[in-house]
Simulated scan of single mutants.
Amino acid sequence: MFSEASNWNQVFFASRNAVTNQNGEIIQRIGSIEIIHTFNSNTIGCLATSSRADWYKAGYLSQVIQAPLGMSGYALGESEFIRLFIATICKFQKFESSYSLSFDVPFYFKDITLTIWEFTGQM
């Protein structure tokens, strides 16, 4: 089921870099990465990479659900810890409505590349 490439649809790919000064110090960190896609499946694949091969923590991938619970009209659902260089399958709770995703990068990262897939096969 998960091993069939035709059951996965890549919906996001992006690289982000922090702004650094001449000494290589971060002066503007990488902000949250908002994945502009409406997800219908609760099974998501994620791969995060960076130039720092000696680190393991990539950040947190969170569900964002439209719900009138605050001033923004959005609420965070579940969050999953994502490791660097390891493709991860996340199975979020299924809500009645669709959702989007947000990825929070640690403040000390100078670069990150993020790929997201949505599972489109049958379970």
Rank of each mutant, 00 (worst) to 15 (best):
N7V: 03
N7A: 05
W8M: 02
W8G: 09
V11F: 08
V11P: 00
V11A: 09
F12P: 00
A14R: 13
S15Y: 01
R16Y: 14
N17T: 11
N17V: 04
A18L: 01
T20H: 05
N21T: 06
Q22C: 13
I26A: 03
R29F: 10
I30T: 03
G31S: 14
S32R: 07
I33N: 00
E34R: 08
E34Q: 10
I35M: 01
T38R: 11
F39G: 05
T43A: 02
G45V: 06
A48G: 03
T49A: 03
T49E: 06
T49Y: 02
S50G: 04
S51Y: 12
R52A: 01
Y56N: 10
K57A: 12
A58M: 03
G59V: 01
Y60R: 08
L61A: 01
L61H: 02
S62I: 01
S62C: 15
Q63A: 08
V64K: 10
A67P: 09
G70W: 06
G73Y: 06
A75R: 14
S79T: 03
S79M: 00
S79H: 01
E80N: 11
R83A: 01
F85T: 04
I86K: 11
A87I: 07
C90W: 11
C90L: 06
C90G: 06
K91F: 02
Q93F: 14
Q93C: 09
Q93S: 11
S97W: 07
S97N: 15
S98T: 04
S98R: 06
S98C: 00
S102Q: 13
F103W: 06
V105I: 08
V105W: 07
P106V: 01
F107T: 12
F107W: 12
F109R: 03
F109K: 07
F109N: 04
K110N: 05
K110S: 09
D111N: 13
T113P: 04
T115S: 14
W117E: 07
G121C: 03
